[in-house]
Simulated scan of single mutants.
Amino acid sequence: MTKWTANELPDLTGRTVVVTGAGRGLGLITARELARAGAHVVLGVRDTGKARRAVAGLPGIFDIRSLDVSDLKSVRAFADSWSGDLDILINNAGVMDIPAARTADGLDLQTVTNYTGPFVLTNLLLEYVTDRVVHVTSQLHRQGKIDLTDLDWRRRKYNGMRAYEASKLAVVLFSLELQSQLTAAGSRVRSVLASPGIARTALAAHSRSNVVNRFTFLTNDPERGALSVLYAATQDVPGNSYVGPDGLGGLRGYPAVRRQGKAGLDQVMAGRLWDATNELVGAVAS
Rank of each mutant, 00 (worst) to 15 (best):
M1P: 08
T2M: 06
K3E: 12
N7P: 00
D11G: 15
G14N: 06
T16V: 10
V17N: 09
V17Y: 13
V18W: 01
V18G: 02
V18D: 04
V19R: 08
T20H: 10
L34C: 11
A35W: 14
G38W: 04
G38E: 11
G38M: 06
G38N: 06
A39W: 12
V41A: 05
G44Q: 04
R46E: 03
D47W: 08
T48S: 03
G49A: 10
K50Q: 11
R53Q: 15
A54M: 15
G60A: 12
R65A: 00
K73Y: 00
V75W: 04
F78E: 03
A79R: 00
S81V: 00
W82H: 15
S83Y: 07
S83K: 15
I90R: 10
N91C: 14
N92Y: 07
N92E: 05
G94R: 08
G94F: 05
V95G: 10
I98K: 12
R102G: 06
T103R: 06
D105C: 10
T111A: 09
V112W: 13
T116Y: 08
F119A: 14
L124N: 03
L125A: 07
E127H: 13
D131M: 03
V134C: 03
V134G: 03
S138F: 01
Q139C: 11
Q139V: 14
L140M: 14
L140W: 07
L140N: 12
R142C: 03
R142V: 02
R142E: 12
D147K: 11
D147R: 14
D150E: 14
Y158S: 08
E165F: 13
A166T: 03
S167Q: 07
K168T: 08
A170D: 04
S175D: 15
Q179F: 04
L182N: 00
T183D: 11
A184M: 07
R188H: 08
R190G: 02
L193A: 05
L193K: 07
A194R: 07
G197T: 02
A204T: 13
V211G: 00
T216K: 15
T216R: 15
F217K: 10
L218E: 06
T219F: 02
N220H: 09
D221F: 13
G225Y: 12
G225L: 08
A226G: 02
A226Q: 06
L227P: 00
S228R: 09
S228G: 03
V229G: 03
T234C: 11
V237A: 09
V237I: 15
S241P: 07
V243E: 02
P245G: 01
G247F: 15
L251E: 11
G253P: 08
G253Q: 14
P255C: 06
A256D: 02
G261V: 02
G261M: 05
G261I: 01
G261F: 03
K262E: 12
A263R: 15
G264W: 02
G264F: 01
L265A: 09
V268E: 15
V268P: 10
A270W: 01
A270K: 04
G271K: 02
T277E: 13
N278F: 04
E279I: 14
G282M: 02
G282W: 01
A283C: 05
A285Q: 06
